[in-house]
Design a binder for these strands. Structure first.
Lengths: 157, 157
DNA sequence: CATAATATACCATGGTATCCCATGCGATCC
DNA sequence: GGATCGCATGGGATACCATGGTATATTATG
């Protein structure tokens, strides 16, 4: 099927119940999924929340399961990612509640910043994102050439 | 059909009869199974309880190594696990009683920590899990690159 | 066979998350 | 430029779920 594509940046308010509106364009991208919501987990590299659709997590789980299920690697990946990921269901208005552990990991308080990453998106504290974005941009410039070379590796059409 | 997918972490209380609520999302994931409950056995790598649905244990018993390439050693593992596994049936409220041997193996007392592992989940003593989780996360970070390479192996669209 | 001990089924309750309705702002379209 | 629609936001009611307790069945035991 068509994979969801997440673009742009959105800053939405977190109400006192911990609810945030998932940006409407993201919800549109997610339309037609079996599960009406998103899956979120702490990023392994950033102080941010990584999020994607259910299908992607299933893929991930299958990938992990292809290891020896009784190995340490299996256990480590499953624990690091799957046990820390949360299924967040949309309410009638397209909101989700951000679980406490994720809120803490990302340092989110009043506002959550949604940043599209293509097949996934991230949720940041605005303050931290303001710092991170220029850094990432700079880094991207430096590695632009290298990136271009690997880009077509997984082309499948 | 769709395999159960267990995510997130839940800390539930063990009452003085040894009962624990299996987290509602897990029960939902297990819905539709022939056996209304779970199968639990001591983890071979961790001081925790491994648990899954009946269907997965049957696969294990049949030696169907769909999730694992090393089938020889694997069947030995399967045997070791089968003899020590317990069928835990839900009561009307979705609870199970944790058998004494498993309780001891995992060092569980007041509270049981459920940790989703994808096709399976684990049950920990919270204290031990607090130690293990950061270790596993660290290990996963180190091996993330390696994992990324094998991830697209099972792409299915 | 009677009685005690244990485990299973059934019922009650409080806290919490989810559902539902209301509002306001901003963009868009006549 | 005014009206309408979409979307983010807020709050109150409701259902769900974890938890504790009581009654009944089941097994052990003297």
């Amino acid at each position: 099927m068509d994979v969801a594509l997440f673009l742009s940046r959105f800053d939405n308010k977190v109400d006192r119940k911990g609810r945030v509106s998932v940006p409407a364009p993201y919800r549109t991208a997610l339309a037609g999924q079996a599960f009406a919501g998103i899956v979120a987990y702490p990023s392994l590299v950033s102080q941010a929340i990584d999020a994607c659709d259910m299908a992607r997590i299933e893929e991930l789980a299958n990938g992990i399961d292809s290891f020896n299920p009784f190995s340490e690697e299996y256990s480590a990946f499953a624990t690091a990612i799957l046990s820390r990921s949360h299924q967040l269901q949309f309410d009638g208005e397209g909101r989700v509640v951000l679980p406490e552990p994720l809120i803490r990991h990302a340092g989110i308080t009043e506002v959550a910043t949604f940043a599209g990453q293509g097949a996934t998106f991230q949720i940041w504290s605005p303050e931290r994102y303001e710092v991170y974005e220029p850094e990432a941009t700079e880094q991207a410039k430096e590695q632009a050439a290298k990136f271009a070379l690997s880009r077509h590796k997984g082309a499948d059409e």
